Amino acid sequence: MPSLSTLKQTAFDPSLQALEADALVKASGLRVADERARGRGAGLNMSGRFEIASREVFDDGWSSLEDLAPFKTEVQVEKPRTVITRNQSPDLSFDRSINPYRGCEHGCVYCFARPSHAYMGLSAGVDFEAKLFAKPDAPRLLERELSRPGYKVQPIAIGTNTDPYQPIERQWRIMRQLLEVLEAAGHPVGIVTKSALVTRDIDILSRMASRGLARVALSVTTLDRKLSRTMEPRASTPEKRLEAMRALSDAGVPVSVMAAPVIPGLNDHEIERILDSAKAAGADAAGYVMLRLPIEVSPLFRDWLLRHYPDRYRHVMSLIRSMRGGKDYDAEFGKRMRGSGPYAWQVARRFQMASKRLGLNLRKTPLRTDHFVPPLGDGVQLSLL
């Protein structure tokens, strides 16, 4: 990979921009041909960082690359032992979450979850979008974990890593089964998604919301259809997400909007418009997250930026690094979600002022925990008392 000094210089020197593009390609493997990657967000498919050997695609002179088939979505079954993941991060408002899928077909090029695919021996690039893992046993495992003696109920977050309503959910329906378990147990849940498919489960969500057990956050990154299509190619369009907000709100489900991620020099000018539109669609709360570029996400995002917005490359990367101490990313708690410095402060103030003007975040009622009753379904160990 290019050195830090080279990356910092590139942000201000246009003559080095082409050099960084070459370095990105050489370090990560040649770019995937456009026809093979059609409909995908990433343009690279480098080897996983834990692999002993790395692969590099090249043309051997026989035009064999043209014979390679386009990437198709493949789904494998994953059989975890547990389904609730715990965390102790001071940056998060929840201490437990569920991910019914590993990998995400939405293909958001900026997704901070991409590096997790390396643990499966796969690439954080196109593999993350095309080679997915489903957990059909998740509802049964959830019942078992909620029934354990000593379980202390707190809201479960779903959609914090990969989207529970990504396209394959139409077939697998794992998320709906999880909601059925949570509703039966009276367990609170918070959902984050970019998909209008969430409206399929309005029947369950509205019943849970009437008991103070559910809240949904729709992530709206941009209102620009062209930018959304290139940056998050298989997610619902911005208009569909706003329509989903309205449908949920009309059904009595509390709705938040997440302006996430804010990308300096690319979508930061839309903060006020996104909040305005979300408020009109029924949102009563809002949040934002600054762009994060951990590990493999950095070269993937920079390659995408060079391909789609080369004229903005220097400006965008300069602003990102100004908030990250000259680096592409700073993982320090308290800074990783917001950044630091004058530009980060300006974005925070704009968000706060727009939210106050619109009356967002004034009264966010906590989800209730007093309805919880441990499940007694199949596979749950009964008490001997």
Rank of each mutant, 00 (worst) to 15 (best):
His308Lys: 13
Val253Asp: 04
Gly339Phe: 06
Met323Tyr: 02
Lys327Tyr: 10
Asp330Thr: 11
Glu272Pro: 00
Val289Gln: 14
Val289Arg: 14
Glu332Pro: 03
Ser277Phe: 01
Tyr288Met: 14
Val316Trp: 02
Asp284Thr: 15
Lys335Ser: 10
Tyr288Gly: 01
Pro254Phe: 06
Leu305Asp: 01
Asp276Tyr: 11
Leu300Val: 10
Pro264Asp: 02
Leu293Arg: 10
Lys327Asp: 08
Arg314Leu: 15
Lys335Cys: 06
Ala331Pro: 15
Trp304Tyr: 09
Ile271Ser: 12
Arg292Trp: 01
Asp268Met: 05
Asp276Asn: 15
Ala286Gly: 05
Arg314Cys: 04
Arg307Ile: 12
Val257Ala: 08
Asp268Pro: 00
Val297Trp: 03
Leu306Ile: 03
Ala286His: 11
Val255Gly: 00
Leu306Trp: 01
Leu291Lys: 02
Ala283Gln: 06
Ala285Thr: 08
Arg338His: 10
Ile320Cys: 02
Leu305Thr: 05
Tyr288Thr: 05
Met323Leu: 12
Ile271Trp: 02
His308Asp: 08
Pro299Ile: 09
Lys279Asn: 04
Arg273Met: 08
Pro310Val: 06
Glu270Val: 10
Gly326Met: 11
Val297Cys: 03
Pro310Arg: 08
Gly325Lys: 15
Ala285Asp: 11
Asp303Cys: 12
Ile295Gln: 13
Val255Arg: 02
Leu305Gln: 04
Asp276Gly: 04
Gly287Cys: 13
His269Trp: 08
Arg302Cys: 01
Ile295Pro: 00
Met337Tyr: 10
Val262Leu: 13
Asp276Lys: 15
Ala283Met: 12
Ala286Met: 05
Ile263Glu: 02
Tyr288Trp: 15
Leu300Gly: 09
Ser322Phe: 05
Asp284Cys: 14
Pro310Cys: 06
His308Ala: 04
Asp303Trp: 12
Pro264Asn: 05
Pro294Ser: 03
Arg312Asp: 00
